[in-house]
């Protein structure tokens, strides 16, 4: 069975097999009828719920709303974390000034800011975007700072002895060296951003994937809850794979 062997050696084969086994177990348990349908809807019911929400346009609208919040919040966080992280990594004074502060705020759970954000900014988009910002900015900054601190001294000093000064050291030595770690930092913290948007929507929203789940709970529609969870997972996976592809293309030297 050489064909089968080749198939099983494919890097994705076992991963797909793992997912397949869980799906199969789910199907069998649901079909056996031992678990109440209210707690465990069948895969078919979940698929139908998905199709229904797709054809009504609800699914696309919810996904778009959630994705937009994540992207705006995370773009703000990533864009600001890059200069601040580089400044902290290269300048001892800035680092000593900000690191304890950030280390403290980092350990305050971002969802605990929701009540404050609602009092300050109401129930519109701003508090949700800010929640994502608060929840990812400090991690992004500190991880970029660490990446900068690990730039080998020799690489910077070589540029100095070749006549380099000031900004070119930053753009031509530090930036390319940390690029892979920065991308990886963004990929990892993007997962938190994605978690936070759902939390924010569970609390207060008119649309979004999190909102849809909390509405479904009110009407005991577990099939819609399952569907929402799967869609959230799938979008997260696509974002993660996107970052990996970007890394392979932009930082081939480090992979």
């Amino acid at each position: 069975m050489p064909a089968f062997r080749r198939l099983i050696r494919h890097p994705w084969a076992l991963g797909i097999l793992g997912i397949g086994i869980v799906l199969l177990l789910w199907f069998l348990i649901a079909a056996s009828g031992t678990v109440n349908k209210l707690f465990l809807p069948s895969p078919q019911a979940v698929w139908q719920a998905g199709q229904q929400q797709w054809s009504s346009g609800l699914l696309l609208k919810d996904a778009a709303a959630s994705i937009q919040r994540v992207f705006i919040g995370f773009a703000l966080s990533a864009g600001l974390a890059l200069p601040v992280g580089i400044a902290m990594g290269t300048n001892v004074v800035i680092c000593r000034l900000l690191e304890p502060l950030m280390g403290l705020i980092r350990y305050m759970p971002a969802p605990a800011f929701i009540p404050l954000l609602i009092i300050y900014f109401g129930l519109e988009e701003l508090p949700k975007v800010l929640l994502i910002f608060i929840g990812t900015f400090f991690f992004n900054t500190l991880m970029i700072m660490d990446a900068v601190k690990f730039v080998p001294r020799e690489l910077v000093e070589t540029a100095l002895t070749l006549g380099g000064r000031g900004l070119p050291i930053l753009t031509r030595v530090v930036a390319p060296f940390i690029a892979p770690q920065v991308l990886d930092t963004y990929r990892i913290n993007m997962a938190s951003a994605w978690n936070l948007v759902i939390v924010a929507e569970l609390v207060a929203a008119t649309e979004g994937l999190g909102k849809r789940i909390s509405l479904a709970q009110r009407f005991l529609k577990t099939d819609e809850i399952f569907m929402g969870l799967i869609v959230i997972g799938l979008i997260g996976l696509v974002i993660d794979l996107g970052f990996r592809a970007l890394m392979r293309r932009a930082c081939a030297w480090a992979t």
């Binding site: 080998p152 020799e154 690489l155 000093e157 070589t158 002895t161 070749l162 030595v173 390319p176 060296f177 690029a179 930082c251 030297w253 480090a254």
Partner: peptide, 13 residues
């Protein structure tokens, strides 16, 4: 004054 180091002498990218 050009310099050659023992480690990390080249830019890997």
């Amino acid at each position: 004054r050009g310099m050659v180091f023992q480690k990390y002498s080249l830019y890997p990218w």
